[in-house]
Design a protein around this nucleic acid. Structure first.
Length: 482
RNA sequence: CGGGGUGUAGCGCAGUUUGGUAGCGCGCCUGCUUUGGGAGCAGGAGGCCCCGGGUUCAAAUCCCGGCACCCCGACCA
């Protein structure tokens, strides 16, 4: 296991103050900076590259499932929001408006989109005429705006980056399949690439997206035991189709409304990545999405330096030629020890140290970010060994995160039990629910925990509602959430 | 949006109570020595003290107003 003494003084230990730890890590690792408008952040290159890695992993999967990217405008006419009642009520309080241009007032206010269901619904109505036009499978990468009262870098910002998929189908069955297919795409991406274990499940009606028939989510546990909704997928029924008149003529010559879905993940994933894998030394990035996977550090006094660096460059080229994202830090102005701490703080998965002793013995010293293990490895077959190590690190990080989640998961029969657990510990609590909204509200009022989701695959079936004691209709994960 | 806290050099902070030359550590620059877990010595640069008003001979400091960030709450795909 890695020793977790904070070598970087400015990083506040997690155990002392988790929020302060989070802020200090993202600043120290140079992922973002605050912008002049409240709640808005700049994604600096090291932070933005994490988002680019997410885009690559998701685009590959979206395209494999038949989706294509497109782009719709940021500005949405006010009248569009009135076409789906629940939708407008859900977003009204957090919409920013463009009301004038120059010194002339606009005839109709324009909202900065909080999501694109309405404008896309409008366009789909023009594009879809026949069953032969279906399904429409479109995704867009975009910025959206939500004027939340309380912001936190990456997890909840006024303007953020996300991806929103919008599909239209001839039948309910097909749309429901799509909704679950994309939820599974998210699970696969987040677990396989980000090494974050998630819980797939269905949202309670209270937590549903404004305007959706059903909302599903994947939920992840942060190291402070709190939950983050890492992705959502919605079956929208014909709600938006009716609001925007998206109709098609079916095989049977009947005019019908399409069934639509929407699904999204955001830059919030970056926040998850940090809070799931990070420790008192800083970030820890899973190799699959780490912009730099391997950092090579030459060591040694001036007389052997040229020799060491020359060999390091050869090894670097070999790694890069094999597709490993490796970099060499041969700057002379920083000591090796400084570089060790620096790259650990930045979360680079694997460090390779090369010094005079290594040259003599035809080896390099590999140091894993996830475990702190130091492994001398031969320069012969280095590339294969490094690739294998990166895979091991990826697997170990996922297993560690899974073990953490399991160690912080509990079950409760009663509200008092749930409250007791959350008072002493942090984590997820599995409990029964009768299906009554009042009981769900009661849990929130008493414990600040919310229903995260109704898992597809719960570890146990709970028999009684933890609030009223009636027979449970569902088994629910409760947790405090970001 | 309510309660609390913070805002001084790139970063972390002291100075504010009791108004009077703007400081410390790290970082940065120059030089020499160093290099296997944030190296040492010497010299040096760097400030609209968050912003706007006010009081005063004089404001980082006192008064009024605003903004931003952090924490707690309400709100929240």
């Amino acid at each position: 296991m890695a020793k977790e003494e904070p070598l970087v003084k400015e990083i506040v230990p997690q155990s002392e103050d988790f929020s302060a730890w989070y802020i200090s890590v993202i600043r120290k690792a140079d992922l973002m900076d605050y912008a002049p408008v409240r709640g808005c952040i700049v994604f600096k290159p090291d932070g933005y590259e994490l988002w680019e890695a997410c885009q690559e992993g998701l685009n590959r999967r979206f395209k494999a499932t038949g989706h294509r990217n497109a782009y719709f405008p940021t500005l949405v006419p006010e009248s569009f929001f009135e076409k789906e009642k629940e939708h407008v009520e859900g977003f009204a309080p957090e919409l920013p408006w463009v009301t004038e241009v120059g010194d002339e007032e606009l005839e109709e206010r324009l909202a900065l989109r909080p999501t694109s269901e309405t404008i896309i619904g409008h366009m789909y109505a023009r594009w879809i005429k026949s069953y032969r036009d279906l399904p429409v499978l479109i995704n867009q990468w975009a910025n959206v705006f939500r004027w939340e009262k309380r912001t936190l870098p990456f997890l909840r910002t006024t303007e953020f980056l996300w991806q929103e998929g919008h599909t239209a189908h001839a039948t309910e069955e097909e749309a429901r399949e799509e909704t679950l297919r994309m939820l599974e795409v998210y699970r696969d991406f987040v677990e396989t690439d980000l090494a974050i274990p998630v819980i797939k499940g269905q949202k309670t009606p209270r937590e549903r997206f404004a305007g959706a028939v059903e909302t599903y989510s994947i939920e992840a546990m942060m190291k402070d035991g709190k939950a983050v909704q890492a992705g959502t997928s919605h079956y929208l029924g014909t709600n938006f189709a009716q609001g925007f008149g998206i109709q098609f003529l079916d095989r049977d010559n009947q005019l019908k409304y399409v069934h639509t879905t929407s699904w999204g993940v955001s830059t919030r994933l970056i926040g998850c990545l940090i809070m799931v894998h990070g420790d008192d030394r800083g970030l820890a990035l899973p190799p699959k999405v780490a912009p730099t996977q391997v950092i090579l550090i030459p060591i040694g006094p001036a007389k052997v330096r040229d020799q060491v660096v020359a060999r390091a460059k050869e090894l670097l080229q070999a790694l890069q030629a094999a597709g490993v994202r490796a970099r060499l830090d041969d700057r002379d102005e920083y000591s090796p020890g400084w570089k060790f701490a620096e790259y650990e703080m930045r979360g680079i998965p694997l460090r390779l140290e090369l010094g005079p002793r290594d040259l003599e013995q035809n080896q390099v010293l590999a140091v894993r970010r996830d475990t702190g293990e130091k492994l001398p490895i031969s320069q012969d077959g280095l590339v294969e060994r490094v690739q294998a190590l990166l895979e091991e690190i990826q697997a170990t990080m996922f297993q560690k995160a899974l073990a953490f989640r399991e160690a912080h998961s509990y079950q409760a029969e009663t509200l008092a039990e749930l409250a007791g657990i959350l008072q002493e510990k942090t984590g997820f609590v599995l409990a029964g629910w009768c299906g009554d909204d009042a009981c769900e509200v009661k849990v929130k009022e008493e414990t600040k925990a919310t229903a995260r989701n109704i898992p597809f695959d719960p570890p146990a079936r709970m028999k009684r509602c933890l609030v009223c004691g009636r027979e449970a209709q569902h088994t629910v994960w409760y947790a405090r959430a970001y």
